[in-house]
Nucleic acid binder design. Sequence first.
DNA 1: CCTGCTACCTGATGGC
DNA 2: TGCCATCAGGTAGCAG
Length: 272
Amino acid sequence: MPELPEVEAVARSLRPLVLGRLIRSCEVVHPIAVRPATARELARRIAGARVANVVRRGKYLVLKLAPRHRGCLVIHFRLDGQLLWFDSKRVSGHVDVVLHFKRGVLGFVDRRHFGRVLWYATRGDCAGIRTLGVDPLTARFTPSSLHPLLRASRRPLKLFLTDQTRIAGLGNIYSSESLWRAKLDTRRLTHRISKAEARRLHKGIVGVLQRALECCLDPAPDFRDPDWWFQGLERILGVYDRRGAPCRRCRKRIRRIEQGGRSTCFCLGCQR
DNA sequence: CCTGCTACCTGATGGC
DNA sequence: TGCCATCAGGTAGCAG
């Protein structure tokens, strides 16, 4: 479930814990999490490296390693991936990959084993990162840059918004929310969207992401709590997981449909 | 190049 | 209470 705001909050909260610190060793408990690499390969790459920076690219969390030729550690949480921090060397619970620092241990956890922890010489070597579209929280994402993007594509708005190669970072939740905020029908085709509607959509996307990020940072993730997760996000959501409930704007019942094999929640009353 | 479909996983949920 | 079926969803890889 982590999308752009959640990963951004994780990046900001993790940075002070690991910045400048030395990765002494790496332990892989569930090898599936580092596939297609092997535990030995990953350990050889990152053991002895220092964390030079922690950044987010789309929904990817990237630990840049120093010196530069040590490459970068790329983490993708997919649906349920999560980070935990242990102050002592003792690690409890289900943990897939463990990074031992001089003081403290970073654990990557994902019971469903969809998430990945991968090493690349450069971040461009990661295909998923290389092909990412514009980051919607940067100045390069503007109403006037969104309109041509929409015109260049021919598909339902919802599917366009979850395509990471166009706009990076939206998933099932915030794509639906952006469209609700913009009062646009999720089934509308991108190339038929007017300039004024594109402006509304831009505002919807940026607005919901900023609001969600604020929420994700207050309270900030506490990796020391094995049960930590983002709190209160449901309060800022207009449609996601609200099937059957009244629309907060027009009181009509929120509908759920399927798009691209995924569920989309939206309001037939005010999204047109 | 563009778009759409499916496999990958496993915990949670719902029906009987 | 217990069992089985279904659902959830991001992305890689493949098909058309």
